[in-house]
Design a protein around this nucleic acid. Structure first.
Length: 565
RNA sequence: UGUCCCGUGGUGUAAUUGGCAACACGUCUGAUUCUGGAUCAGAAGAGUUCAGGUUCGAGACCUGACGGGACAACCA
């Protein structure tokens, strides 16, 4: 075994988690084994925030030669469904991670958990409380004041055993009784004040049906599940920090040898302009504000996928933001950078004109067509070249022409010259304007036959180069522009819970009458392209009629400013 | 009037465990007949929340402030 496959010096930053794990191995804990787990609750679709956890859980296991389990934390049948189980598995695979045969469910451990609870009762460390939720809650006191003991705290072991059995037999109503661990009502940590560990739920479970009438709470299931699976490092987000003493308390009651799992917390992903609460995302789906969990405006992994993000770009992004204990807000521009970086290498460039403006080259022979050669990807020669037809009438982007241009405008304007990329230099000789609306309808130009790309025999040089599409050859396209993910806060950092307020009706804009290169007529579905200058898109369906732009040309900050005018 | 966690350029992270604060994103400037929001080159921007202390030397260790966050679900 040789350590250091690469001469990576100290330049590679190590997260504190990595250091903790390395220390544990060095100290010989758990026999040097490393097992992690990704533990989603199947109550919604995975979003970009989960990607951060997935990359960590699977990444650490891989880095230290260990394994990572997939475990569904399905202890609350009221909120869970198989639909979510399936989507979660699909999304993890999409990201490129594999749990192999280790697909586990907390519900697989219901039996063991029940036995463990019975064991605690017998040790006089758990009791049945007959009080309603609000009383139990108020007896817990406040964080700064100690709690009061429940009048049922000293029930006999036999009575507790009997009641727990009958709870599971369905003899009592939901909410009428709970099982609580007997820990410490005076603890400054609220989670240690006799936490509820079992409650009655009569809704059928998506995997165990009606087998159980009592279900363990998160705190009574998570650590134990880790223990049952031999997990060594249980990585979770910061809000579980206060749960750790309880996690350890249950492990202490359970463990029989030197092995013990360790919980380590890291910071959750927050993205600027992006609303990530599962609950609110679910509301958007249920209220029909979006087309579904995979609506490209959603920050879900399936939404990002439809939007055109690649798994590599998501992983790259996660890699860039790192893991700390600081509650950070990451800038979406970094996510956008990650996808651009990835696609610049992979996506062929093509011409597309979203807002067409017809240009007529008056001295170009009518009816003549010539094919010009264009490079598919300037960063990757192996992607080859393509031939694009050029003719007398072409479309350019409306933005590429201005009647009265400002100082540094190097595109087309009356009297100005530009190159049509891959073709000729043209000069604007005039234009036609609608008398009423003032809209530019056509632009008239002349071209110089000596200036063809690759064979420019003239001395001409121009500042601007425009992309274009031959009018008679253009493929009509419908292009969807997704401006942003959901916004939940403004750039001043002030949070606003009323996320609906930030739902921009224009966030999905469908442009029809767009003109794209004929070569796109032969593209395969889901192939990704970059419009020269405009952004990236992919062919959305077999119909070939819908093109999907996911990385448009206006920054989020600009959108925000526009929206609030 | 509690317990725990956290304060490093605008943002996110580093700093070989006490030795000249580094990188990425973003921003700005310049170049370019590969549109240029790409690429390349360059620049600006923090003295590490504050005050003490230990030390030859502190972003790191200690004490105390200040600021932010988590915790009072029969959710996870």
């Amino acid at each position: 075994m040789i350590e250091n496959k690469e001469p990576v010096s100290r330049s590679e930053p190590q997260s504190f988690i990595e250091q903790f794990i390395a220390e544990d191995i060095k100290d010989g804990k758990n026999g040097g084994k490393i097992v992690t787990r990704f533990p989603p609750e199947p109550n919604g679709y995975l979003h970009i925030g989960h990607a951060k956890a997935i990359c960590l859980d699977f990444g650490m296991a891989k880095k230290f030669g260990g394994k990572c389990n997939l475990r569904f934390d399905d202890t609350n049948p009221i909120k869970e469904d198989v639909e979510y189980v399936d989507s979660i598995k699909e999304d993890i695979h999409w990201l490129g991670f594999d749990w192999e045969e280790r697909e586990y469910y907390a519900s697989d451990y219901f039996g063991k958990l029940y036995d463990f609870a019975v064991g605690l009762i017998k040790k006089n460390l758990a009791y049945i409380d007959d009080q309603p939720a609000d009383i139990i809650s108020s007896q817990k006191g406040k964080p700064e004041q100690p709690g009061q003991k429940s009048p049922f705290r000293n029930r006999s072991v036999d009575e507790n055993l009997d009641l727990f059995l009958r709870m599971n037999n369905g003899e009592f109503e939901e909410g009428s009784r709970v099982l609580r661990a007997k820990v410490d009502m005076n603890s400054p940590n609220m989670h240690m004040r006799d936490p509820i560990i079992y409650r009655i739920i009569k809704t059928p479970h998506h995997r165990t049906g009606n087998k159980w009438m009592v279900y363990p709470m998160y705190d009574f299931a998570h650590g134990q599940s880790d223990y049952f699976e031999g997990v060594t490092h249980s990585l979770c987000t910061l809000e579980f920090e206060v749960h750790r003493p309880l996690y350890d308390w249950f492990i202490d009651q359970l463990k029989t040898d030197d092995y013990r799992p360790r919980q380590i917390e890291f910071n959750r992903l927050n993205l600027t302009y992006t609303m990530m609460s599962k609950r609110k995302l679910l509301e958007l789906v249920l209220e029909g504000k979006v087309k579904g969990w995979d609506d490209p405006r959603m920050p879900t992994l399936c939404g990002l996928r439809r939007r055109g993000y690649t798994p590599e770009s998501v992983k790259r992004f996660v890699d860039l933001i790192g893991y700390t204990k600081v509650e950070a807000i990451n800038d979406v521009s970094l996510l956008e950078h990650a996808i651009r970086e990835d696609l610049n290498l992979k996506a062929p460039r093509v011409f597309g004109v979203l807002n067409p403006l017809k240009v007529i080259i008056k001295n170009y022979p009518e009816g003549e067509v010539e094919n010009v050669e264009l490079i598919n990807n300037p960063e990757d020669e192996s992607m080859g070249k393509r031939l694009v037809p050029f003719s007398r009438e072409v479309y350019i982007e409306q933005d590429d022409f201005m009647e009265t241009p400002p100082n540094k405008f190097f595109r087309l304007a009356p009297g100005m010259e530009v190159r049509l990329k891959g073709a000729y230099i043209i000069k604007c000789e005039g234009f036609k304007k609608d008398g009423i609306t003032g809209a530019i309808e056509e632009v008239y130009c002349t071209y110089d036959a000596d200036t063809r790309s690759g064979g420019n025999t003239s001395e001409k040089k121009v500042k601007g180069t425009l992309h274009w599409v031959s009018a008679q050859h253009a493929v009509d396209a419908e292009v969807r522009l997704y401006d942003r993910l959901f916004i939940h806060e403004d750039p001043s950092g002030q949070k606003d819970d009323d996320y609906r307020k930030f739902l921009n009706p224009d966030s999905l804009k469908i442009l029809t009458g767009c003109k794209v290169e004929p070569s796109l007529g032969t593209a395969k579905p889901l192939e990704k392209f970059q419009f020269q200058r405009l952004g990236y898109f992919c062919v959305d369906s077999d119909s070939m009629e819908t093109k999907l732009v996911f990385n448009r040309t206006v920054s989020l900050k600009d959108s925000w400013a526009k929206m609030n005018k």
